[in-house]
Design a protein around this nucleic acid. Structure first.
Length: 431
RNA sequence: GUGGAUGUAGCUCAGUGGUAGAGCCCCGGAUUGUGGCUCCGGUGGUCGUGGGUUCGAUCCCCAUCAUCCACCCCA
């Protein structure tokens, strides 16, 4: 490379490349998710990653941290204010409304993709991160709340994570009850201004319910005497919550009721829940969601009950990696390595490889390319993780055979007629 | 946005005010058609970047960028 004064261009802070050594874990996770969604009868929806800024301002809440200081917002060439989506629910609601999916019908949707928030990166938290989300529309009763929670619980089971995550649930009450409680709480906190720390004073405006969750011991007494959310639930929400608990009990799903569990986004009401883990440091929430019955109306649609959740893929993949839960066979590699022994047989090897791929569509066959000594070719076969190397040289070509060499066990290598090769390799294709 | 730690080879890391080393990886050889183990050799660094102090800075000072951890926030 020439000596250039140009600065090295690197990835944007907090936006990561997903390298080949990592991608199999993601694929493993994504495959499980896709399969699961099908099993539960959820349909995939894909929406653009850019939306009008107003969509997020109106749905997430004007005074939330996300909208106030974490959005990637910019002006389009025609002057419109656009924003890289910081979460998936708003886009999903917008798209569903826009295409009439909510008109006199119910929906069970899921999505997956990148989200963007301008936060200080740390373990399990990045500026471009990825979520899988589920959104359901048109179901009023607690059965759908239970259904989406059970769906998430089954995913942990499928992934081997069940023992490592905990379900916390709470109810925020109806939008009216929540608003009334909020006012009451703010009034209470204002009477105790002298005890409030800096963070809490700020939250008094942005998210007063969050103050209840403060870890500051100096405020513990004051918080314990604060009005309780549970005491201010409206009757319908109370019933809804009781029924949900009964359904979870009947399903054998363990949970903890956390009266201080408050979601950060404005649109939640009634049921809220969170799956957390202690294995990831301070970013322990791995999946979170709840009911948002008012959002569709808030965005200009007909009143439509809705429940959903989102999970952070980075966090879950990190968890899978930490706990070593991705099976070896999911971690990539190939089954066989086809190796021409010198330059003179390159073309034959190439055509043989294509023949085998046609005959065995699921066989993972890597063809040696790039020349090199025989020794280096063998080394690459070894590195490839293939269990079998197919050696092709002048002798083999002369008699229309190949040499099968077993790289991972003690079996003698053998000559096999090319016509029988596909048949011999079948056993390697168990997937 | 706040606080702390760290930036030396592709990776993991030593190290010194007189412009650098190990292990792993990679390449070649010992082994003309047999990988893994062993041995030998080799490629590869403007010591994150820019300034300052100094005869001289990878080392000391300042700034900046990046990464990591925590706070905040959140998935």
């Amino acid at each position: 490379m020439s000596k250039s004064a140009a600065k090295k261009i690197q990835a944007i802070r907090g936006m990561n490349d997903l390298l080949p050594s990592e991608s199999p874990r993601w694929q493993f996770f994504e495959a499980k998710v896709r399969q699961l969604m099908q099993r539960y009868g959820f349909d995939e929806i894909r929406t653009p990653i850019v939306e009008q800024t107003a969509l997020f301002a109106r749905s997430i809440g004007e005074v939330t941290d996300i909208v106030e200081k974490e959005m990637y917002t910019f002006d389009d060439r025609n002057g419109d204010s656009l924003t890289l989506r910081p979460e998936g629910t708003a886009s999903c609601v917008r798209a569903a409304m826009e295409h009439g999916l909510l008109h006199n019908q119910t929906q069970r949707l899921w999505y997956q993709g990148p989200m963007f928030r301008h936060e200080r990166p740390q373990k399990g938290r990045y500026r471009q991160f990825h979520q899988v989300g589920v959104e359901t529309f048109g179901f009023e009763g607690p059965d759908i709340d239970a259904e989406v929670i059970l769906l998430s619980a089954r995913l942990w089971q499928e992934l081997g994570l069940s023992a490592h995550v905990t379900l916390e649930i709470n109810s925020l009450g109806s939008a009216e009850a929540r608003a009334a409680y909020r006012d009451k709480l703010v009034a209470y906190f204002e009477q105790h201004q002298d005890v409030l720390d800096e963070d809490s004073k700020r939250r008094l405006i942005s998210n007063p319910l969050r103050i209840l969750d403060s870890k500051n011991p100096a405020m513990a007494d004051m918080l314990n005497n604060a009005p309780q959310l549970m005491d201010h639930l409206d009757e319908e929400s109370r019933t809804h919550f009781e029924q949900l608990k009964a359904m979870l009990d009947a399903s054998g799903i363990g949970y903890v009721i956390n009266p201080r569990l408050v979601r950060g986004l404005d649109y939640y009401c009634r049921t809220v829940f969170e799956w957390t883990t202690t294995a990831l440091g301070s970013q322990g929430t791995v999946c979170a969601g709840g009911r948002y019955d008012g959002l569709v109306e808030q965005l200009g649609g007909k009143t439509t009950p809705a429940v959903g959740f989102a999970m952070g893929i980075e966090r879950l993949v990190l968890l899978l990696e930490t706990l070593d839960l991705v099976p070896d066979e999911a971690l990539g590699g190939c089954d066989v390595y086809l190796l021409p022994m010198d330059e003179s047989v390159t073309v034959t090897a190439l055509t043989l490889a294509e023949t085998l791929r046609s005959e065995l569509p699921t066989l993972r066959l890597q063809l040696h390319c790039g020349g090199g000594s025989f020794k280096s070719r063998m080394k690459k076969a070894d590195k490839s993780a293939a269990s079998v190397a197919i050696l092709l040289g002048e002798d083999e070509i002369a008699e229309q055979t190949v040499t099968l060499k077993f790289l991972r066990d003690e079996r003698e290598q053998q000559r096999v007629p090319q016509a029988e090769l596909a048949n011999q390799l079948k056993d390697l294709v168990s997937h």
